[in-house]
Structure formats: structure tokens, C-alpha cells
């Protein structure tokens, strides 16, 4: 089976029902997407499929249609995506484990809605669980990233 992740095509020999998350983590050694719950309750595994946020723990790899982008493909430490830069500026992460998913979800949000209100941020980001309680800074960082993106 072939799949494209962060622009690179990979060939994997796995059963089609294996969730994309475990293909990424255990077959391709792409560790940015995290396992937190396995049932779409935490969002730590969020990736983009053709630009749309998807919980990779829910997607059987056999049903994958489109290119996958993980946090590693969104931006790098040397070339941060605006959302990542805002996350750093606001010192959002504590343990950081959920933040790959939070950042991927926030980037997808800003792609669809460049100027989200607080209520819209609440509606989109409440599917991503953070047990450390970084929510106030996530809100602030998304507004900041939205502004930076609109100036760009």
C-alpha cells in the first residue's frame, strides 16, 4: 500500500484496517502524532489529509484518500509555521504531548477561518484535550497567529 506523508511517498505492508496513526508511528517512525486515547476523544493524533484536520487514530489506512501532513511537515524548528511561532511566543506547551494535535487543529482552523472569534475557537478546539491546562494560552496564541497570517 502506498501513502504520501509530508510530500514523501511510502510503501507499507499493513492490513487496511490499521489506523493511520500506527502506520505513521510504528511503520514510518513519524512520531509527531501522538497516541492518547485511540477513540477520537483527545485529538493528540491530529494530522491533515489534503489540508483537513483528521484524527489519525480513527482513519483506517485503507480508507486514506489524499496526502498526509503531520506536525513534522507543517513547519520545522528552523522554519516555523505561524501557528507554531505563536505557540512558542506564548509559551503554550507544558508537557507538550497534546500540542502536536492542538497545533495541527489550530492550523486547519485558521486555514478555513482566518479570523476566528473566541466562540469559534472554543467550538473548534474543544475536541483537543489538554490535561495540563494550557487552554488560556492556546486561545491567545491562535488570535496571535491569525493576526500574523493576515499581515503576511
Amino acid at each position: 500500500m502506498k501513502l504520501t506523508v509530508n510530500g514523501t511517498e511510502h510503501e507499507v505492508d499493513v492490513e487496511p484496517e490499521m489506523p493511520l496513526l500506527w502506520v505513521l508511528r510504528d511503520e514510518l517512525n513519524i512520531k509527531g502524532p501522538k497516541y492518547g486515547c485511540g477513540i477520537a476523544q483527545c485529538g493528540a493524533c491530529t494530522v491533515h489529509v489534503d489540508g483537513m484536520a483528521v484524527r489519525s487514530c480513527q482513519l483506517p489506512v485503507g480508507d486514506l484518500e489524499g496526502g498526509v501532513t503531520t506536525i513534522e511537515g507543517l513547519g520545522t524548528p528552523e522554519r516555523l509555521h505561524a501557528v507554531q511561532a505563536a505557540w512558542v511566543a506564548h509559551q503554550v506547551a507544558q508537557c507538550g504531548y497534546c500540542q502536536s494535535g492542538q497545533i495541527m487543529q489550530a492550523a486547519a482552523l485558521l486555514d478555513l477561518n482566518p479570523e476566528p472569534s473566541d466562540a469559534e475557537i472554543d467550538a473548534v478546539m474543544s475536541g483537543n484535550l489538554c490535561r495540563c491546562g494550557t487552554y488560556p494560552r492556546i486561545r491567545a496564541a491562535i488570535h496571535d497567529a491569525a493576526q500574523k497570517l493576515s499581515e503576511a
Binding site: A40, Q58, L59, P60, G127
Partner: peptide, 26 residues
């Protein structure tokens, strides 16, 4: 969910209905 979080973020499209308990049905 287009205005906020598309349903398909979690409820992916698949002919395989067999999910774990409490996972997003599809």
C-alpha cells in the same frame, strides 16, 4: 460542521463500521 469542526475530523468515511466502543462511529 463546516463552520467549525467538520464532522469528518473524527467521523471518517469508511465502509468498515467496526470501531472500538466510544470511538467515533463512521
Amino acid at each position: 460542521g463546516a463552520e467549525f469542526l467538520p464532522c469528518q475530523t473524527c467521523h471518517v468515511t469508511s465502509d468498515d463500521f467496526d470501531t472500538a466502543p466510544h470511538a467515533a462511529p463512521r
